[in-house]
Design a protein around this nucleic acid. Structure first.
Length: 479
RNA sequence: CGGGGAGUAGCGCAGCCCGGUUAGCGCACCACGCUUGGGACGUGGGGGCCGCUGGUUCAAAUCCAGUCUCCCCGACCA
């Protein structure tokens, strides 16, 4: 008996990363291509992952005082154009509805590329007094953006996301909200998805259209390219002005509230797949895995009933976990091992006649750390411990990768050398001048990612112009 | 959007250059037998608008044109 079994149809992850990614998504039945260009179907196994992610993020959002609502998909053009920067940023990507039934519409309707316009229109109706603030609303919905180049989960014409839109009395309060959500995203993505992220403020050039400040979380993929995994924006009073939102404050004067918006998309599933998958296929982090464990009975044709009975009993015993029992007689045990590894189930539980006799089972974690024999009486506790250690190991491994792909550079030459040697993040000092950023972008074909708070304040010199500065920013090639 | 590649059974592919029996192989599927602690084996069988549309031809998976979709490398972009 040997540890083996790479699914043949999946190319190696190190050899052809893009092909590997596509194959894993399709073979693990997470998603499939739809008949419309750039659109995809999330299949039940992928959707189960999304639902688990949603549930855990939704809880965090509600625990911080937010409530869910739903706003319409269709947005009148005149609403979308109210905020100048906003419309400029999105117009190339907007899909339009121009006809209803047989009649041409007098005003075309956008399929929402984001919901600031429609939501702030409603907020203008709802907010009259400081007593109405803060407004803390989130919605889960679909979004349309007419992308030129699409990839499963990473960039599609239609995608699912969550978008929070809040209004506050003061700038400080709105700023605190923006950062609270940024922290919330870090907590969710790192602890539940086991994907380490770089959280920080975006430079001017990378800000959301219409925002005062944009913060992002960035994840580093195995090919050394950064993937923006979530954003949190301080909108200032831009949208309050554009949509004429006013409230009467305690001092009896009319004021404009301060807004924020923030979102993460199913792109996180792409980040998760790329970060954790390997040559065998998918690897689901236990906290969000559709199945945390799969029970595979070892059948020989004799005593099968006893083995299957024990498997069912074991599944019942593990009611606190998401467990699948694969009792199909049509597939061999070995076939199932490969299948569930390809699908990324974190732990396999084998039960055969020998195990039944000894009142034990065999636990085999997906991380390759080897099998262990566990008395059935201790299984629920042991499985929990094993799942925790698998989850922790996934985050640690991913963190080690990011560390190994993060470089510092003081000169342009150093930047290029480091990027070549260790494709990933390059951390540099920057004077905040747009010309210097442009020069660096042109010279390296990377883009600025963000400026983590913990890196700031250390004196240095701008990598381009040499001017003294204490601003530190990360660069990378990106998706 | 530019350059390159691909689309033939559920999956992976061959056939195409050089048009011509009934379009082929592996896996999967069905039946029977034999098996079963890491994708078993044997025998027999079922399954095809050759991406789509049009053209050339006596004859098109094969040649020509158009079109759709996917992949890769760029450009653009939250």
């Amino acid at each position: 008996m040997k540890e083996d079994g790479v699914v043949k149809e999946i190319p190696s992850k190190s050899g052809s990363f893009s092909d590997w990614y596509t194959a894993v998504v399709l073979k693990a039945e997470l998603a499939d291509y739809a008949p419309v260009r750039g659109c995809m179907v999330i299949r039940p196994y992928g959707y189960a992952l999304w639902e688990n992610m949603q549930a855990r993020l939704d809880k965090r959002i509600k625990d911080t005082g937010h409530v869910n609502a739903y706003f319409p998909t269709l947005i009148p053009e005149s609403f979308l154009t109210k905020e100048a920067e906003h419309v400029k940023g999105f117009s190339p990507q907007v899909a339009w509805v121009t006809q209803g039934g047989d009649e041409k519409l007098t005003e075309r309707l956008a399929l929402r590329p984001t919901s600031e316009a429609i939501i702030n229109t409603m907020y203008a109706k709802w907010v009259k007094s400081y007593r109405d603030l803060p407004v803390l609303i989130n919605q889960w919905c679909n979004i349309f953006r007419w992308e030129k180049a699409t990839r499963l989960f990473l960039r599609t014409l239609e995608f699912l996301w969550q978008e929070g839109h809040t209004l506050h009395r003061t700038r400080e309060e709105a700023k605190a909200e923006t950062l609270r959500i940024l922290d919330l995203y870090v907590d969710f993505v790192e602890n539940d998805l086991a994907v380490p992220v770089l959280a920080g403020a975006k430079p001017e050039s990378e800000k959301f259209p219409g925002a005062v400040d944009t913060y992002s979380i960035e994840a580093l993929m195995p090919d050394g390219q950064a993937l923006q995994a979530g954003t949190s924006h301080l909108l200032g009073q831009h949208f309050a002005e554009a949509f004429d939102i006013r409230y009467l404050d305690e001092d009896n004067t009319e004021k404009r509230p301060w807004g924020t918006s923030w979102g993460v998309t199913w792109r996180l599933m792409g980040a998760l797949i790329m970060t954790h998958g390997d040559d065998k296929g998918m690897f689901m982090p236990p906290r969000v895995a559709p199945f945390q464990a799969v029970i595979v009975p070892i059948l020989f044709g004799k005593n099968d009933d006893a083995v299957l009975a024990k498997c069912r009993e074991t599944k019942a015993q593990l009611a606190g976990y998401r467990v699948q029992l694969d009792d199909r007689a049509t597939q061999t045990a070995g076939w199932k091992y490969n299948e569930y590894e390809m699908r990324g189930v974190p732990v396999r539980i084998e039960i055969g006649p020998k195990d039944v006799a000894k009142e034990q089972c065999v636990l085999v974690p997906r991380d390759g750390s080897g099998k262990r024999f566990v008395p059935l009486a201790e299984l629920p506790g042991e499985l929990g411990k094993l799942l925790d250690s698998v989850q922790a190991g996934m985050l640690e491994r991913a963190r080690a990768f990011v560390r190994s792909r993060t470089s510092d550079a003081a000169t342009l030459d150093e930047f290029k050398q480091e990027l070549e040697a260790k494709p990933g993040y390059v951390r540099v000092h920057w004077c905040r001048a747009q010309e210097c950023e442009n020069a660096l972008v042109d010279a390296t074909r990377t883009t600025p990612r963000n400026m983590p708070a913990t890196d700031q304040g250390k004196p240095g010199k701008c990598i381009v112009c040499g001017k003294p500065t204490d601003t530190v920013i990360y660069y990378a090639r990106t998706y």
